[in-house]
Amino acid sequence: MDLSIIIVNYRTYDLTKQTINSVINKNHSFEYDIYVVDSASQDGSLEKLQNDFSQAIESGLIKFLASAENKGFAYANNLALKEVSSRYVLLLNSDTVVLDNCLEDCMDYMQDNPQIGALGCKVTLPDGTLDKACRRSFPDVSVSFYRLIGLSRLFPHSERFGKYNLCYLDEDGIYEIDCLVGAFMMVKSEAIKQIGLLDETFFMYGEDIDWCYRINKAGWQIMYYGPARIIHYKGSSSQKKKSKLIFEFYRAMYIFYNKHYKKNHSVITTGMTYLGIGLICSLKLILNLFKR
């Protein structure tokens, strides 16, 4: 098998069906299969998807895995990663649409450049604007500080202050970056065998950055491939639990810092980092309550 595509479903029947169709309704030049992992949706979406794609299940094109409980994005993807045996793996969000020859172009580029461990395409929102999370720098202390205090928003095209989302780079270009977004991440299986599965300490944010960090440290390149594109209906699957999402976003910052940066910084820097994360998280949660 050339490519295994992993899609996590959590109460997103319509979106997941749309994502699957955006893949299987195209004629691909490579062999692939799809793993759909249901994170204990308990809303009937798993059963409806299995019924909709019964023929694809019979042919072996689509395999469904059901988790007994929702333990997060990393955990769900790992269930499938333990089953795949393909040369490449694609993590694909259930709220995306794959366009044109996106998969072929990404596969061809990775095969032509064997030093690439992970590759991401251009991810756009429904209005056509770039989903800025699709190309990022590692959130070290300075990069995170500029983001937390808002300088990255005030000066997005500054190579110093806008480094987090790399807004000063051509969104249609091809270049090496630090990390991709888990909505579309094509990874070489050889790299996965070397660095291991996703870290399940992260619930639904940060696991993609952590994976890229480990892939990069293992000596593999991480590439942004702008000519290929998907649409990301970002947030469509999680609007009802926004406070939970805010908490998990900043919790992921804390986990990532502890895992990769804490040992290289003083107690004072670590304390200031914890304080900054805690204050911003608290402020965001309070503002969210007023909005609701």
Rank of each mutant, 00 (worst) to 15 (best):
L130P: 05
L130K: 06
D131A: 08
D131R: 05
K132Q: 13
K132V: 08
K132E: 10
C134E: 10
C134R: 05
C134P: 10
C134K: 05
C134N: 14
R136D: 07
S137A: 15
F138E: 12
F138I: 10
F138K: 06
P139D: 10
P139H: 03
P139F: 07
D140E: 15
V141L: 15
S142E: 14
S142F: 12
V143L: 07
V143N: 12
V143D: 14
S144N: 08
F145C: 07
F145Q: 02
Y146C: 10
R147G: 10
L148I: 11
L148C: 09
I149Q: 11
I149N: 12
I149K: 07
L151H: 07
S152E: 12
R153A: 10
R153V: 07
R153I: 04
R153D: 12
L154M: 08
P156S: 03
P156E: 06
S158H: 00
S158M: 03
E159L: 08
R160C: 04
R160P: 00
R160M: 09
R160K: 14
F161Q: 01
F161D: 00
G162V: 02
G162D: 00
K163Y: 03
Y164H: 03
Y164A: 01
L166W: 03
L166T: 02
L166D: 00
L166H: 03
C167E: 06
C167W: 06
C167R: 13
C167I: 04
L169R: 15
D170C: 10
D170I: 11
E171R: 14
D172I: 02
D172Q: 11
G173I: 07
G173V: 08
G173Q: 11
I174T: 14
Y175W: 15
Y175K: 08
Y175F: 15
E176F: 11
E176T: 14
I177T: 02
D178Y: 11
C179G: 05
L180Y: 01
L180R: 04
A183C: 15
F184I: 07
F184N: 03
M186S: 08
M186Y: 13
V187A: 10
K188S: 13
K188F: 00
S189Q: 10
E190V: 08
A191S: 13
A191N: 05
I192N: 02
I192S: 04
K193Q: 11
Q194C: 04
Q194R: 12
G196R: 04
G196S: 06
G196P: 02
G196E: 01
L198M: 10
L198I: 02
